[in-house]
């Protein structure tokens, strides 16, 4: 197990190098001159040249990439062209808002989807099953920003229960928690739907297994069979999916944060794209990718703990 984790960690290095290379190359394809953007439209050519030299933009591409990598390892992501502050610092200030929102959303998703999936599986082919799976299908298909706008209209404008936008503190304060509710629901709709469908099909699959027949034939009640025998195994793929969804939520946060003017990393990256602030886009995308691969690794390791049948050595 430890060997497996070490091997996976080593394998992360080329992946992250590749991610850095792709991000770097994409950002250097940006049309327009970052030095010109930074200098402003009134700057003279000499000023632009000076900035270009200071940022190292006059160096060959591979030298720039090497400098970028060196910076990455030291936690230096460059300077924002817009605010002239270190990108790492700006990202650090916004990371909590995004990470806490994603964590709340995945917790909410699991709390909603697993009972819904169990409900549907227990009544396979009933009206309740069909209705909840139809709702799940709608949940997967509805754009999150649309759901966000609808929730905002009804629960913030029509019935002023929650603030329509912004973050009013960490989730353990009342005002903070209130501001988390609408973005959390919005962000979690699609993962709730996907996980509910998987929970349902996973339970149905397990209920066809021989050991369930054995449990039933020895006279166990249906509740005991379901909750004690079936559910544990049925939830293994669901837990894996929850990990994958957590990664997907990071991507989804970009959109939801924009809807709710959430002071997170996603909205920051989007506005950086509009301002052509490429060090910020580069740093933000790198950090999102890093979180994503680390989460995926954690899911794989967790998988081995939950399911003792899986051995990685």
């Amino acid at each position: 197990m430890v060997r497996y984790i070490i091997r996976r960690l080593v394998l992360l290095i080329p992946i992250l190098l590749g991610v850095a290379l792709i991000t770097f190359l994409i950002m250097h394809l940006i049309p327009g001159d970052p030095a010109r953007v930074m200098a402003g439209i009134t700057a003279s050519d000499a000023d632009v040249e000076a900035i270009r030299a200071r940022l190292g933009l006059d160096q060959p591409l591979f030298v720039q990439f090497w400098e970028f990598l060196k910076g990455l390892v030291q936690g230096d992501l460059g300077t924002s062209l817009r605010t002239r502050r270190p990108v790492a610092l700006e990202i650090q200030e916004r990371f909590f808002a995004t990470a806490s929102l994603a964590a709340m959303a995945i917790a909410f998703s699991m709390a909603m989807s697993i009972p819904l999936g169990i409900f549907a599986a227990r009544r396979q082919h009933s009206a309740g099953d069909n209705l909840s799976m139809l709702a799940a299908m709608f949940g997967i298909s509805a754009p999150s920003f649309w759901i966000g706008l609808i929730l905002m209209y009804y629960l913030a404008y029509r019935l002023p229960l929650f603030p329509p936008s912004g973050m009013y503190g960490p989730p353990w304060t009342l005002a903070g928690l209130q501001s988390y509710i609408l973005p959390t629901i919005t962000l979690s709709i699609s993962s709730t739907a996907i996980m509910a469908r998987l929970t349902r099909s996973s339970i149905l699959e397990i209920l066809r297994q021989d050991y369930i027949r054995t449990a039933r034939s020895k006279g166990l009640g249906e509740r005991l069979v379901l909750y004690h025998h079936a559910l544990r195994n049925a939830l293994i793929p669901v837990i894996t999916l929850a990990g994958i969804q957590l990664g997907a939520l990071l991507g989804g946060a970009v959109v939801v944060e924009t809807v709710f003017s959430w002071p997170g990393l996603g909205r920051y990256v989007v506005s950086a794209i509009h301002y052509r602030d490429f060090p910020v886009v580069q740093g933000g995308v790198m950090l999102f990718a890093l979180c994503f691969v680390v989460i995926n690794l954690a899911v794989d390791v967790l998988y081995a703990f939950v399911d003792p049948r899986i051995r990685y050595d």
Partner: peptide, 23 residues
């Protein structure tokens, strides 16, 4: 392995980075 690297970008972020570059 190249595909693995491309899949290390969460969700729509890879597309966003490309749009950032292409305009």
């Amino acid at each position: 392995r190249i595909m693995d690297i491309m899949m290390a970008f969460p969700g729509v972020l890879m597309a966003m980075a490309l749009v950032a570059a292409l305009g």
